[in-house]
């Protein structure tokens, strides 16, 4: 036995395999060459009679014989099967409806809370929470709302027996959080709020807000602007910008209203932004010194910013929802689209 002989046998085997007409013939050839009593074991057996010097080369040749023939068997088998498949499975219909248990979905409001929270988390904020039922102190007093402010009216706020109320803003969480911790504070508070509004296409007596608060030794209005700019880009798209308009809130000074440039038209004016190119998104400002004082912080040593926005409003803008009531109607055919 020498290398030439082995190579000749390899060529012969490959040629026979290529000609195998069906599975039976192929199996016969496999047994003939690779089977327990086939050619390969016989040749391996013969290797022990070969001179030591020739052994490595011949061993390699026999190995090549084995791998080549094995691969050829596999290849021919696949080819034969591919050719016969349609005949074997005539009833197969790939177009039948697929079967797998359904996947559920989160409510669009939850989706937006998660999305906004995720952006702020990446910026180092943590999510904080507080009760829906609040005291006048946390909902109003601690936020520097004057005792006779209109927002405290029975016409605007839902009251409960015992001087309690349903929080009208998630800012109430800020006051609670600051009371329990020393600065720095960097939180967002998503949550449910209530206002005594007659429900219509754009108002809901029960709604959600997300509130942010950052307090540290040196936080400025310019920091607020750059952080909000970042949030605007992350939420609405890389081209979206924010702008500040001076405004008034009891709990911040200075106070601003924040517009985002319209994500639909890029600021040129369209139906979504009512032709203005800008959409009002949130209220914000620098935390009023009185709010710090009530929380037990020294306004001489810390500054901070706060912002808040309505989730339903954001959902309507981002998802193109025309009527806020759809969000609480819970028709599965509507919700499943988000």
């Amino acid at each position: 036995m020498d290398i030439k002989e082995v190579e000749g046998l390899t060529a012969q085997a490959l040629s026979e395999l290529a000609g195998a007409a069906d599975g039976t013939a192929l199996e016969g050839l496999r047994v003939k060459y690779l089977g327990r009593n086939g050619l390969l074991p016989a040749l391996m057996q013969g290797l022990k009679d070969v001179p030591a010097a020739d052994k490595p080369a011949l061993g390699l040749a026999l190995n090549r014989f084995k791998t080549d023939v094995t691969a050829a068997v596999k290849e021919r088998k696949a080819a034969l099967e591919a050719g016969t498949r349609p005949a074997l499975e005539a009833g197969f219909d790939y177009s039948l409806p697929g079967r797998w248990p359904r996947q559920g979905r989160l409510h669009p409001i939850t989706q937006l809370i998660d999305r906004t929270s995720a952006i702020f988390r990446r910026m180092g904020f943590v999510v904080a929470d507080g009760p829906d039922i609040e005291t006048e102190y946390y909902n109003f007093d601690a936020l520097n709302t004057p005792p006779d402010h209109v927002s405290r009216d029975l016409g605007d706020t839902f009251y409960l027996p015992g001087g309690l109320l349903l929080r009208t803003q998630t800012s109430a969480v800020q006051a609670r959080y600051m009371e329990q911790r020393q600065p720095p504070v960097r939180i967002v508070c998503p949550g449910r709020c209530y206002r005594r509004d007659t429900t219509d296409a754009t108002h809901s007596a029960n709604f959600h807000q997300i509130e942010g608060l950052y307090v540290d030794a040196k936080v400025s209005l310019a920091d607020l602007k750059s952080d909000i700019d970042h949030f605007a880009r992350e939420l609405m798209g890389p081209a979206v910008k924010s702008r500040f308009r001076a405004h008034f809130f009891p709990f911040t000074e200075p106070s601003v209203e924040v517009d985002f440039s319209c994500h639909m038209c890029g600021g040129t004016g369209c139906r979504v932004c009512k032709q203005s190119g800008w959409i009002e998104i949130m209220g914000a400002g620098m935390v009023d010194p009185n709010v710090f004082q009530m929380a037990g912080y020294d306004p001489e040593n810390v500054t901070g910013y706060a912002f808040g926005m309505g989730i339903e409003r954001l959902a309507m803008i981002l998802f193109g929802i025309d009527d806020i009531r759809r969000l609480y109607e819970n028709d599965v055919r509507y919700l499943a689209q988000f």
Binding site: G124, R181, A222, K225, S226, R245
Partner: peptide, 24 residues
């Protein structure tokens, strides 16, 4: 003019000890 606020690079700030495991 609020339009003239100088641009600042937004910074992520970690507050040690603050976590939000209940929310997670």
């Amino acid at each position: 003019g609020l339009k003239k606020l100088p641009p600042v690079r937004p910074m992520a700030t970690i507050v040690p000890g603050a976590d939000d495991k209940p929310a997670q």
